[in-house]
């Protein structure tokens, strides 16, 4: 069953979509057909709707985020939005049949369909049943598919177990996604992830490759005697942005030596406290190395 007021989402999308497609297409989309009609509609839908980006008012965007906490259709094209709407029309009363129907779409999907389907995980019924599918998606090597799962998607942080969650975060670093766009990143950070990222930093240093700055965001809450040397190394970096990242991690740490280290850089400490340096400003800084 749905864990949010799906009727409201159906209605709101049903209001937005007709603003973007012809009345004939809207009628076609709503018409119910025989068996196989759902699959056919899902697949050939872009031919009817086109693929132009949608115009989403700030008000509607906010409403969607309220109806399904954290879900956003910002940046969607009209075909993607129509596909989400279509998914929401699928009868969910028979759990096995519902899951089979959507799983079939996943198995035969091309890239845009995969993006749509993984992006829709937060609004599907029986959310606890999609964890395996989500973990499978994280194994994908297709950049846009990964992005649909990793960025601005509230599903993973709500439902994945720790191992799958950690894979998502690691994969985000490996494939250079915008880690700041991971929903629930700080809340789901954990010791295991921090340890793995520490190993990763050593691997990158051994290979003379840059270490992603945002990984220290995930380590910050778990700075301890074992990994403090890593933080000291980052803070000692000649690259000012890397140094700021290290100090930002110290700021978010409860480890006293990290606090002491931060206090040796009063200017940066002030800038952090006044909000001028944060994890978003770090990635926007022009001096950022390719990482």
């Amino acid at each position: 069953m749905f864990t949010y007021p799906v009727v409201q989402l159906r209605a709101l999308l049903g209001k937005i979509i007709p603003q973007h497609i012809s009345p004939e297409t809207w009628e076609w989309l709503q018409a119910t057909g025989g068996p196989g009609d759902f699959n056919k509609k899902f697949v050939l839908l872009p031919r009817k709707t086109g693929k132009t980006p949608i115009n989403l008012s700030a008000e509607d965007g906010n409403k969607i985020r309220e109806i399904r906490q954290g879900f956003s259709v910002e940046g969607y094209t009209i075909d993607r939005l129509c596909r989400v709407w279509l998914l929401l029309q699928l009868d969910e009363t028979n759990e096995a049949a519902y899951i089979r129907a959507i799983e079939n779409l996943f198995q035969a999907a091309e890239v845009n369909e995969l993006v749509t389907l993984y992006g829709s995980l937060p609004v599907l019924a029986y959310p606890e049943k999609w964890t395996g599918r989500c973990a499978e998606g994280i194994r994908s090597n297709i950049g846009v598919v990964l992005e649909a799962i990793i960025c601005d998607n509230p599903y993973p942080s709500e439902y994945l177990d720790e191992a799958a969650w950690n894979q998502l975060v690691l994969k985000a670093f490996f494939t250079e996604k915008d880690v700041n766009r991971i929903t629930g990143l700080d809340a789901r950070s954990n010791k295991t992830l921090a340890d793995t990222l520490s190993d990763f930093a050593h691997e990158r240093w051994a290979a003379s490759r840059p270490v992603p700055l945002l990984q220290w965001r995930c380590v910050a809450g778990f700075i301890d005697v074992a990994n403090f040397a890593d933080i000291e190394k980052v803070v000692a970096s000649e690259n000012p942005v890397e140094q700021k990242a290290g100090l930002l991690a110290c700021y978010h740490s409860h480890y006293p030596p990290a606090k002491a280290l931060l206090s040796r850089y009063p200017e940066i400490k002030n800038a952090i406290e006044s909000g001028n340096i944060n994890w978003h400003s770090i990635t926007e800084d022009k001096n950022v190395p390719v990482a």
């Binding site: 950690n166 894979q167 690691l170 490996f174 793995t196 190993d199 990763f200 691997e203």
Partner: peptide, 10 residues
């Protein structure tokens, strides 16, 4: 044996 890309050492 293929060793993993992520969390390689462990």
């Amino acid at each position: 044996i293929h060793t993993p890309h992520r969390d390689k050492k462990k």
